[in-house]
């Protein structure tokens, strides 16, 4: 990712200043429901951009279709709101043809893992130098709460009125096994870890994937009898385990502890590796052929 050249002095900056600096104010009010976690994800992303000091004139946000895909419209930057599932293919074209641009994609679980699943695994495999921030709310929110490929087995949705019969995809595990070089997952409850992870993702020269577990207080909670945002946050606390703890228990834990791991979702920085991005490889090829 390209940064502004000059050395930046870290200054204290207020949330209002962040909003004034990065948001496209004439697009407000936004479309998100009360209690939705997408606002948190946007907030954390903006803080990460500020910490990293990216040149916003050289930064492009892309998205597909869905609630989270409306995010680029609210940021005052070149923003490309494309078709359902296709943001990563679009981003591939942008990044390969202009490697100078910082390319960031907002996507959702349906957009990325449902209709866009094929583009997702191939973008990971190619190790395109882009940052993907996936808002996983475990349901199709924009269309009114239909079951998603990430909906936990047994949970309810308008199209799974008797409970979801299908097992769920783990997006982060899919990213790792497909070749992404930085993968992290966090709930939206706490800001610091996600901000750091998004910043690390921006720094990684390759495919970076940050999955944000984010509440859908309208479609998901209504059907699964989770009354308020607090219940979601408890759910994240009870359901998740830090990747380091997970590893420790797997190696040294008691049988009981190991049994408990089965129902847990790993959070933290899940994967990191150094690998040449496709842009670098194309550049090398061009130089080779020119010689």
């Amino acid at each position: 990712m390209e940064k502004k050249e000059e050395k930046r002095e870290v200054e204290m900056i207020s949330a209002k200043e962040i909003r004034d600096k990065y948001l496209r104010h004439d697009m407000m009010p936004h479309i998100f429901c009360t209690g939705c976690g997408i606002g948190n994800v946007l907030d954390y992303t903006l803080w990460a951009l500020e910490k990293e000091g990216l040149d916003m004139d050289k930064t492009v946000f892309l998205s597909g279709i869905g609630c989270s895909s409306r995010l680029p419209g609210y940021i005052d930057v070149d923003s490309l709101h494309t078709t359902h599932g296709r943001a990563l293919a679009f981003a591939t074209g942008v990044k390969i043809t202009n490697p100078e641009l910082n390319v960031i994609v907002f996507t959702g679980d349906g957009d990325c893992m449902g209709i866009g699943g094929n583009h997702f695994i191939h973008a990971c495999r190619r190790n395109i130098d882009i940052t993907v921030i996936a808002v996983n709310n475990y349901i199709y929110g924009m269309t009114g709460g239909q079951v998603a490929p990430t909906t936990p087995e047994g949970d309810y949705a308008t199209t799974a009125p008797y409970g979801n019969l299908e097992p769920a995809f783990d997006m982060s595990e899919m990213a790792i096994s497909s070749g992404a070089t930085y993968v992290a997952r966090w709930g939206v409850k706490r800001p610091n870890q996600p901000i750091n992870s998004i910043q690390e993702a921006l720094q990684n020269k390759g495919m970076s994937f940050v999955e944000m577990m984010s509440p859908c207080t309208t479609a998901y909670s209504r059907q699964n009898r989770m009354g308020s945002i607090e219940e979601f946050w408890d759910w994240y606390d009870n359901k998740t385990i830090l990747a380091e703890d997970h590893e420790r228990i797997k190696q040294y834990g008691s049988e009981e502890e190991k049994e408990e791991l089965k129902d847990k979702i790993k959070v933290g920085v899940l994967h990191k590796e150094e690998k040449k991005s496709l842009s670098e490889r194309i550049q090398e090829l061009i130089e080779e052929v020119q010689v």
Partner: peptide, 17 residues
Amino acid sequence: MEDELASITAILGASWA
């Protein structure tokens, strides 16, 4: 690309770049 959906989408991205 992985399919024709991706092919045309990638060229739209390239055009905007």
